[in-house]
């Protein structure tokens, strides 16, 4: 069956890189997939997979989604009712949390329990920018990442309420979740679309779901 993957355009993030990486990953694994960028919530209805990118501040991203009439409801419907594979990148993943402490207190989707908190900056620079390794802490997830280096850019992290939702961790001052998964919802704190072959592998895993 042809996969229909929608990358949600809500005015945030480098959508073209995300799109290119999904095209590359599907070509590499011979998956017949159509990868579209769209800001039209109705496009989610016939999508098999949805990707939520995100750069910048949590609040700005959430507002960007809310500004598009019907988008938030359609996203929730896709995740909770249709229960199809959903992937968040960086702040796109952080939006899964219950809330974020970035510049105030802001509500997230609450799909994966926990809070977005600031990384400690006593011994380390912020943002955490560059390549860092991950350690797999839950091998049961359908996402099977290589224990390799991935490209990160962020100052906040997802403090997951439930340990079983953490697939992999990364150390930068503290250990924080770098890949999360709960049921049909998957997310990376790093940028798989900018993480060379190992990043494309994670995207392949997701497309194959």
């Amino acid at each position: 069956m042809k996969k229909k993957i929608t990358i949600v355009d809500y005015g945030s993030g480098n959508l073209l890189s995300a799109q290119q990486s999904f095209i590359k990953a599907s070509n590499l694994s011979n998956i017949d997939a159509e990868i579209q960028i769209s800001n039209d919530p109705t496009k989610l209805d016939n999508s098999t997979h949805v990707v939520l990118p995100g750069q910048g501040a949590f609040k700005t991203c959430m507002e960007g989604i809310k500004k598009i009439p019907g988008m938030q409801d359609r996203l929730c419907e896709f995740v909770k009712i249709k229960q199809r594979p959903f992937f968040g990148i960086c702040v796109g993943m952080q939006l899964f949390a219950d809330n974020s402490e970035e510049n105030g207190n802001h509500q997230g989707f609450g799909w994966i329990g926990g809070t977005i908190k600031k990384l400690p900056s006593l011994e380390t620079k912020l943002p955490h920018m560059g390549w860092n390794n991950i350690k797999v802490v839950n091998a049961n997830s359908p996402i099977k990442p290589e224990e390799n280096d991935y490209y990160f850019v962020h100052s906040y992290f997802f403090d997951c309420a439930n340990r079983e939702n953490v697939v992999a961790e990364t150390k930068y001052g503290i250990n924080f979740p770098s890949i999360v998964n709960k049921e049909n919802v998957y997310g990376c704190q790093f940028h798989p679309e900018k993480s060379s072959a190992q990043g494309l592998n994670i995207i392949k895993n997701f497309i194959n779901l």
């Binding site: 480098n14 073209l16 890189s17 290119q20 095209i23 900018k194 993480s195 072959a197």
Partner: peptide, 28 residues
């Protein structure tokens, strides 16, 4: 951006928000 999957920076003559937006939209 179709071939390279690591971060890409572009500089030189960036003067405006529009220049930045165009570069980012093109894949930087």
């Amino acid at each position: 951006a179709q071939e390279v999957f690591i971060p890409l920076t572009v500089g030189g003559g960036i003067k405006s928000i529009k220049n930045i937006k165009d570069s980012l939209m093109a894949g930087a």
